[in-house]
Amino acid sequence: MLYRVEAIVIRSTDYGEGNKIVTLFSREAGKVSVMVRGAKKMNSRYAAVVQPFTCGQFVFFKNGQMGTLNNAEIIQSYHMLREDLLMAACCSYLAELTDRLIGEQENEPYWYEQLKAAFQAMTEGKDADIIVHIYEMKMLAIAGYTPQLDQCVSCGETAGEMAFSFGLGGILCKSCRRSDPQTVPLSGAVLKLLRLFSRMDIRRLGQTDVKPETKQQLKTLLRGYMDNHLGLRLKSRNFLEQMEKYGL
Results as ranks from 00 to 15, higher is better:
I142T: 06
L81A: 08
A95F: 01
A88Y: 02
E104N: 07
M122H: 09
C90N: 12
S77W: 03
C91D: 03
K126Q: 08
C91H: 10
I74D: 01
Q148N: 06
D99T: 02
C91Y: 09
A128S: 14
D129K: 07
E104I: 01
I131S: 14
E73R: 11
E113L: 09
L115M: 12
L115A: 03
G144D: 10
I131G: 00
T146W: 05
L149V: 07
R100T: 09
A95P: 01
F119G: 06
M137H: 04
L85N: 06
F119Q: 01
Q114M: 15
S92K: 02
I130Q: 03
E83T: 13
E73D: 13
A72Y: 05
P109K: 00
Q105V: 05
C91P: 02
G144N: 11
P109E: 00
M122W: 03
I74H: 06
I134R: 09
M137F: 10
E73S: 15
G125M: 04
Q120Y: 11
L101T: 09
Q76F: 12
N107A: 13
M87L: 15
P147E: 03
C91E: 00
E106K: 10
Y93F: 15
E83H: 11
L94E: 06
F119I: 11
P147R: 00
V132E: 12
Q76L: 08
A72C: 08
F119E: 02
I74L: 07
W111A: 04
Y135A: 12
G144Q: 04
T123I: 09
Y145E: 06
L86F: 09
I102Q: 02
Q148S: 12
I75F: 07
Y112L: 07
I75W: 05
K126N: 07
T123M: 01
Q76G: 11
Q148A: 11
L97Q: 10
H133T: 00
A121L: 11
I142W: 10
I131E: 09
C91F: 05
W111S: 01
D84A: 05
G125W: 14
L149I: 09
A95W: 02
A89I: 00
I131T: 05
Q148H: 14
T98R: 06
L140C: 02
Q148G: 06
Q105C: 10
T98K: 08
S92E: 02
A143R: 05
K126E: 06
L101Q: 01
A121E: 13
A118W: 07
E83R: 11
S77R: 10
Q105A: 15
M139R: 11
L85Y: 12
E108I: 05
L86V: 14
D84V: 09
E73Y: 03
I142Y: 00
I131P: 06
